[in-house]
Every structure is written in structure tokens, then in C-alpha cells.
Simulated assay, not measured.
Amino acid sequence: MSSSAPSPRYPAPPFAEQAQPWPGLQSKMDPRPDCGETSYRGNGRLAGRRALITGGDSGIGRAVAIAFAREGADVAINYLHPEQGDADEVVELIRAAGRVAVAVPGDLRSEQFCAKLVEDAAEGLGGLDIVVNCAGRQHYCDDIVELSTEEFDWTLKTNLYALFWLIKAAVPRLAPGSAIITTTSRNAYDPNKILIDYALTKAGIANMTRGLGKQLLPRGIRVNSVAPGPFWTPLQVSGAQPQSVVEEFGAEVAYRRPGQPVEIAPVYVTLASAESSYVTGQVWGITGGDGEPG
């Protein structure tokens, strides 16, 4: 029996060579990531809630948007303009679940846009109860001497500054019982040598989550984070990894394959729901059996 036997229906490497320009489209991947489009079944765990999800067009953010909608939440998603095709599919899936869908394209590297995103999401949904940060920038570089200030700034603005701006804009709108969920990475704890800037931001997100969990608890706002290991998303095929790594992506963990976004979405649902009323400042690792935390 192979070590991937617990979930044999999901694809394992080797994968086909499939480089895409940033930010990458899920619709062009082979195989396409499974975000629960046909499999996720909700149970009303987020009935009546209103959620903003960054990076909601594809990958983990897409899976979270689908799961939230099928659990009864109205959902606003943010994405970049080139990802409009993938985003349109998510909007249709949210509406097919009988929920309100709000689409707000734009670049999170702008503080002004982050404030407008929160405002547009709250207006479109009639309020805001949940903020989920899934959008991220990851681009490998073998040598720090070759890592430009422009690339470094791009990663920090997308991954750290945007999170600060979004939370700062959202907190005044969040009532007691609300939840903020960030997305860190196993790289926060075991940094890949070719992902120096990305790993730095993910460590910062984990640290920020723990601090805000303490700071915002008196307001009744819980703050938690999810730390994925290798997950099959457009991030990987659009410069996050060399093609040689993409072809064997996920082979190094105990499952011998990458996770599919549908496999991590239930963790976000749990952290967003009232079932996690005693959980804040925590980082939940979903790493395929390897790495920290988890």
C-alpha cells in the first residue's frame, strides 16, 4: 500500500511542466485544483455571517469562499484583474449556494485600495463578521544578491502591509463574535532557502496573529491563522517554485503529494464559526504530516 493511500483520489506527482505568468490562473492548471466545487457539502455552520476573503478567485481562497457560502455565509472576494475569469466562476458558485456574492478586484499593495475593499465588502454584504487573508505573493530567488528591492517590496507589501491595512480598516466594523483568519505557512517555521522574502512575511503573519489575538480579544474579535504545507494552487506554477520543483511538488511530505484546497477549507470554517469561541492567537498547521506547526 502506498503512503498516499488515505486519499487516493487526489493527484500525486509527477506533474506536467506548466509555467504561467504571474498571478496564474487555476483554469489553466493540469490537473485543476480541487476547491470543493462538486464535493463540499455545508451544514449551516456560518449561517447569516458575512465574510471578506482576499485571494478568493483560486486555490485556498477559492475553496474557503465555496465552503463559507455553502455553510450559509454571504461572501465578498478580492483578486487581481487578470484573474477575472477564475473569479467569475467563484461568484457563480456562491450565488448557486443561494448566498450574496460581491467581487472587488484590485491590488492589495495600496493602502487606499485596502480601505476601499473593506468598505465595498461591508456595503455589499450589509456588514462584516469575518475577514480571511488568503492572498499572497511568493516568487523564488536562489541568491539574495539577485533579490531586487522591487521584488522584496512587492512581497512585503502584498503579504504584510496589506494585512495590516485590511485589519486596521476592518476592526471598527467587526462586532463581538467576529473572526479574523490569516494565512501563514510552514515556511514561517522552516524557511526554504530560495524563499527568503516570502518566509520572512509568513513568520511576521504568525507573530502578528498571536499578538492581535491578545489585543482584540477584549473586543470579542478572535484572530487565528492557518499554516499550509504544500498545496496545489496557481501560486506554484506562476513563479513560486522552479519548474523542477513543481513537477515533483508535494513528494517530500508524508502523503507524497500536495494537498488540494478542499482539504484545508474546513479548518477555515471551524476557525470562523462559533464552535471555536475559545480559540484565539493560534496557528493551525496543515502540512501533509511533515513540518511545523502540526
Rank of each mutant, 00 (worst) to 15 (best):
I205T: 11
A206S: 12
A206M: 10
N207T: 13
N207P: 00
M208D: 07
T209S: 12
R210M: 12
R210E: 15
G211W: 04
G211K: 07
G211R: 08
G211H: 08
G211S: 15
L212E: 02
G213P: 04
K214V: 05
Q215V: 14
L216N: 02
L216C: 09
L217F: 07
L217G: 11
P218N: 13
P218V: 10
P218S: 11
P218R: 05
P218D: 13
R219N: 14
R219I: 08
G220P: 07
G220E: 05
G220K: 04
I221M: 02
I221E: 00
I221K: 02
R222T: 09
R222C: 07
V223A: 03
V223L: 01
V223M: 00
N224W: 09
N224G: 07
S225C: 13
S225P: 11
S225Y: 04
V226H: 00
V226W: 10
V226Y: 00
P228A: 02
P228D: 05
G229I: 00
G229L: 07
P230D: 14
P230W: 08
P230N: 13
F231L: 12
W232N: 03
W232P: 01
W232L: 05
T233Q: 05
T233L: 03
T233R: 02
L235K: 08
L235I: 14
Q236D: 11
Q236H: 10
Q236F: 07
Q236K: 12
Q236V: 15
V237N: 06
V237G: 03
V237L: 05
V237I: 08
S238R: 02
S238A: 07
S238M: 00
S238I: 05
G239Y: 03
G239L: 05
G239C: 06
A240R: 01
A240P: 03
A240W: 01
Q241T: 13
Q241A: 14
Q241P: 06
P242N: 01
P242Q: 07
P242V: 03
Q243F: 09
Q243V: 13
Q243G: 03
S244Q: 14
S244I: 07
S244W: 06
V245M: 12
V245G: 10
V245E: 13
V246K: 06
V246C: 02
E247Q: 15
E247A: 15
E247D: 13
E247F: 00
E247G: 05
E248A: 13
F249P: 02
F249M: 09
F249L: 11
F249W: 05
F249V: 03
F249E: 03
G250N: 10
G250E: 09
G250V: 06
G250Q: 08
